[in-house]
């Protein structure tokens, strides 16, 4: 009845490291053991790296890495506006207010055989924890990394040790069509259990379409504007198909942020 995360906490963590990961992209590593302890792939955090009331709201980010031994997590983000610019200027040792882990963990198949991971831009970020988890469960991951230009292809070397194969696609080299072809081949040749996609509605629609024809479960990370992250503001809705007809609104922070593509409407 009540969907919410029982392990979510509000803590003040500490920045351990903040490094550039490409033009406009950064990886932030923070010490927040209480949050990391209960976090799982597919979940996210709401961060606040400033004390005053402007910017007002926390900023949501997917977990990029979960390092339980070190009690640390990483997020990979793009500097988009005021909030992410402020976070990119933090320094090791600075305090960071962390609310999380939030959202629903990915419902992994107990023994996944093979999964596809498709990320565009900073949408590659959550694929790393998924690849790690799939490997831990004895499965194989195939990553398709997409970006506008070669310098925006993120995490490729980081993903390799955890994936069976990593392919890259850039817009300047006709990436859209090539990615479609690569995914079709992958679906045909490998018995994929699931395909995860983040960072592009176009790619999510593609996976939804192939999922209907194929036999894998497609999932998309949805990003809706969020104020609270815990289900109280009712602001973060996505349209989800209803059993009968039509659709209902689902809160991305409670039911998501990862939704089955057989249910969620990509708009």
């Amino acid at each position: 009845m009540f969907l919410h995360c029982f392990w979510a906490m509000l803590i003040t963590g500490t920045i351990l490291d903040l490094r550039p990961a490409g033009p406009e992209y950064f990886v932030l590593r923070a010490h927040a053991p209480q949050v990391v302890q209960h976090a799982a792939p597919g979940q996210f955090v709401m961060l606040q790296g400033w004390g005053e009331q402007d910017p007002l709201l926390r900023r949501p980010f997917d977990f990029h890495r979960l390092d339980r031994e070190a009690g640390a997590f990483e997020v990979l983000f793009k500097v988009k506006g005021h909030g992410t610019a402020m976070i990119s200027r933090l320094r090791p040792g600075d305090p960071l207010s962390v609310l999380g882990p939030l959202g629903r963990p990915i419902p992994f198949h107990e023994a996944p055989k093979a999964v596809g991971l498709i990320g565009r831009g900073s949408g590659v970020s959550p694929m790393f924890t998924i690849a790690e988890e799939v490997r831990r469960r004895g499965g194989r991951s195939y990553a398709l990394v997409s970006a506008r230009s070669p310098d925006r292809l993120l995490c490729v070397d980081e993903l390799r040790p955890f994936c069976q194969a990593v392919w890259t696609f850039t817009d300047d080299a006709g990436g859209g069509a090539a990615l479609r072809q690569a995914l079709e081949t992958l679906v045909r040749d490998e018995a994929l259990d699931a395909v995860f996609t983040c960072g592009s509605n176009r790619l999510a629609s593609l996976v939804a379409q192939l999922g209907q024809e194929g036999h894998f479960a497609g999932y998309a990370f949805m990003d809706a504007p969020m104020a609270c992250g815990v289900g109280t503001c009712k602001g973060c809705v996505c349209r989800v198909r209803r059993d009968g007809a039509g659709y209902r609104y689902a809160l991305a922070c409670l039911e998501g942020p990862v939704f089955p593509l057989s249910e969620v409407l990509i708009e």
Binding site: Q53, D54, P55, L56, L57, A224, P225, M226, A227, C233, K234, G235, C236, V237, C238, R239, Y249
Partner: peptide, 9 residues
């Protein structure tokens, strides 16, 4: 949606 948007303060 969209149901919310942030503004200054």
């Amino acid at each position: 949606p969209p149901r919310i948007v942030e503004t200054p303060c």
